[in-house]
Amino acid sequence: MPRITKEDKARNRQNILEAAGRMFRSQGIDAVGIAELMKEAGLTHGGFYNHFASKNDLVVEVCGASFAASLGVLAQEIEDGPDRHGSPLTRVVAGYLSTAHRDAPDGGCPSASLVTDAGRHSEAVQSAYAVGVEGYLAGFAAEFVREAEQEGRTLTPDEARRKAMRLLSEMVGALTLARAVRHVEPELSEEILRAGHRQALD
């Protein structure tokens, strides 16, 4: 039997991470077993422990990687600056509270899809989630300060952080509620998204 190369091992590990990211978001962490996960990744059950010491270690890494990807999108929007669609934060809110994001719970930002699971799991998982939250708060607060300066206003760091907390809380809350009722009350779900979109940056 041929030996697996470093490249193959790295690719297999990435396949596990990607499959876990999709499944944890859409089904919940506890609902996903290792055998089911490895099947989704196209690998054998026994191979899991060649890559991760435990499921908890995998969850921590998935949480960190998922937030890193979402924060990368936020950073790019801020770097791009205002355009015909509005300010960077206007675009971020529009994308986050979109029907497409609502209907793709296996992708997108983990802030809403893992919000309940994070609180039920280990301190390491909670810490990874907290790092992601802090990343959003820092990005939002910095953009609020920049916008205020551009408009000739003064916004203190504390004020900017409070605004950032409110924005993130409203976004996560609206998306979570919209997803919870979308199958049985689609009109209510859309109403929640629209209201969240309107209120977020008021």
Rank of each mutant, 00 (worst) to 15 (best):
A174G: 01
Y129G: 03
H85M: 07
H197E: 13
E143H: 03
R166F: 08
G173V: 13
G107M: 04
E191W: 04
G21T: 00
G107I: 05
L175F: 01
L175K: 02
S26I: 04
E149H: 15
G119F: 03
A148V: 06
S70D: 14
L58P: 07
D30F: 03
V115W: 09
E191G: 04
E77R: 08
V125I: 10
D80Y: 00
R120H: 07
E7I: 10
M38T: 11
A68V: 05
V59P: 12
V181T: 01
A200P: 02
G95C: 13
A100H: 12
A20E: 06
L155A: 04
V125H: 03
M165L: 12
A75Q: 09
A180Y: 01
M23Q: 15
D57H: 12
E79A: 00
A19Y: 11
Y129T: 00
A141D: 12
V60T: 13
E147D: 02
R162W: 13
V172M: 07
I34H: 07
L193C: 10
G33Y: 10
L37Y: 04
G72M: 05
L155M: 13
G33K: 12
L175N: 04
S122V: 12
I29L: 01
I29E: 00
M1A: 10
A174F: 01
L58G: 09
E149Y: 10
Q14Y: 03
Q76M: 06
A75R: 08
S111A: 15
G139S: 10
F52L: 05
K55E: 06
V60N: 11
A174P: 01
V73A: 02
A31G: 03
T116G: 09
V133F: 15
G95P: 15
P105Y: 04
A164V: 05
S169I: 02
A19P: 15
L177F: 09
A124K: 11
V181D: 06
G119W: 03
V115G: 08
E61V: 14
V32Q: 10
S70I: 08
I29A: 00
A41S: 01
G47H: 12
R91K: 11
G107L: 07
G72F: 03
R13S: 04
N12E: 13
E151N: 14
A10T: 00
C109H: 06
M171W: 02
T116K: 14
A118L: 05
D80F: 00
E170H: 14
S66N: 12
V93F: 10
M23V: 02
R161S: 05
A128W: 00
F48K: 12
A10D: 02
V60L: 14
G95L: 09
G81R: 07
V131C: 07
L201C: 10
L193T: 00
Q76L: 08
Y49N: 07
Y96G: 15
G173N: 10
D8S: 13
M171V: 06
V93P: 05
Y96D: 15
R91I: 05
E187V: 11
E185K: 03
C63I: 01
L193P: 08
E40R: 09
A10M: 07
V59R: 06
L167I: 00
R11C: 08
P110M: 04
A142D: 11
S169G: 14
L188R: 13
Y136N: 05
R162E: 15
L168K: 02
G132R: 00
T154E: 11
E159N: 12
V133A: 11
E134I: 06
H85P: 13
G86E: 10
A178I: 00
A118M: 03
P186S: 08
R3P: 02
L175D: 00
V184I: 14
G46C: 12
